[in-house]
């Protein structure tokens, strides 16, 4: 029964690896701290790198303890996820491609494996191989976790920037008592026109604005979709009791609108923002007149 005894003394490969990781925590962390990945991320001090390495080793041991060496979603990783993401992002910022970061992570495996082999070298060959395989799988899972977190960090960044872009791109300006204007800049898609509509309607309520001017000078092209968005905004503003004026229609865009056969008949349009403002002021009963000779102009 030699095989059986071997099982008895060494336990399952997963547990063997777990015990090894806990036993050699310090040494592994020390060796990792010399690897380019840790060296380049934790530039301040080597101790910091060692601490980070220890945390990762602890996480790996915990995952092995749970017996989920091939599961990137294992609970053990949650503690170090942020740190791993930081490493991935830092390397990405340094100009490395995802593949390069991945191969840097791969180099972390070798020192650990050497330690493992020297630790359990006297055990039966089959057991050693099983442990080495388990360790390899575990390190592979670690790579997946790092790449995953780095990618999701990137996605979160893109999402944040998209939101910021929406906010930045749609200011509502009060031109006069009861007159607000939105200068639209860039291409209008559904998401943006939705934001424009919401902010415009909100400011109509806040400013008690009877006129809202949509200036499309900065919109490069007007197609049926953009026209539809404009009509919707105009209709919604009208429902709330405000009149909408579309201004800044350049000659080329006027031609396009006619060519497309779009009916903007229900919308008040003006060539420029100034014309729209003039119209709105006139409707409000205020007119712009030049200064009189004695300097007491109306406005």
């Amino acid at each position: 029964m030699p095989e059986h005894t071997a099982e008895e003394t060494h336990g399952s490969p997963t547990h063997e690896v777990r015990d090894f990781l806990r036993r050699r925590r310090e040494q592994i962390a020390q060796r990792w701290a010399d690897e380019p990945l840790f060296r380049s991320v934790f530039t301040v001090s080597r101790d910091e790198a060692v601490e980070a390495g220890k945390a990762v080793v602890d996480a790996l041991a915990e995952v092995a303890d749970a017996g989920r060496v091939d599961d990137p979603d294992a609970a053990g990783f949650s503690g170090v996820r942020e740190q791993l993401a930081r490493m991935g992002v830092a390397r990405g910022r340094a100009g490395l491609t995802a593949a390069q970061v991945s191969s840097e992570l791969a180099t972390l495996r070798q020192p650990v494996e050497n330690l493992l082999l020297s630790d359990i070298g006297e055990a039966p060959a089959e057991h050693v191989r099983a442990c080495a395989t388990t360790l390899t799988v575990l390190m592979g899972t670690l790579r997946v976790v790092v790449m995953q977190t780095a990618l999701s960090e990137g996605e979160a960044l893109i999402d944040r920037q998209r939101l910021q872009l929406l906010e930045v791109a749609t200011p509502v300006i009060k031109l006069w008592d009861g007159i607000v204007a939105v200068p639209l800049i860039g291409t209008l898609d559904s998401a943006r026109s939705q934001v424009v509509m919401e902010t415009l309607l909100q400011s109509i309520v806040e400013q008690q604005a009877r006129f809202a001017i949509l200036d499309i000078t900065g919109v490069p092209t007007v197609d049926t979709l953009v026209a539809q968005h404009l009509m919707k905004t105009v209709a919604a503003a009208r429902l709330m009791g405000a009149e909408c004026i579309v201004s800044g229609i350049r000659p080329a865009i006027a031609q396009t609108i006619v060519h497309l056969g779009l009916d903007l008949g229900t919308v008040i349009t003006r060539a420029g923002l100034a014309d729209a403002l003039k119209y709105a002021l006139h409707q409000l009963g205020a007119d712009i007149v030049g200064p009189t000779a004695n300097g007491t102009g109306h406005r």
């Binding site: 509509m197 919401e198 309607l201 209709a235 919604a236 429902l239 709330m240």
Partner: peptide, 10 residues
């Protein structure tokens, strides 16, 4: 009419 209501109706 509230903005949200106006948007919904449109």
């Amino acid at each position: 009419m509230r903005p949200a209501v106006a948007i919904t109706l449109v």
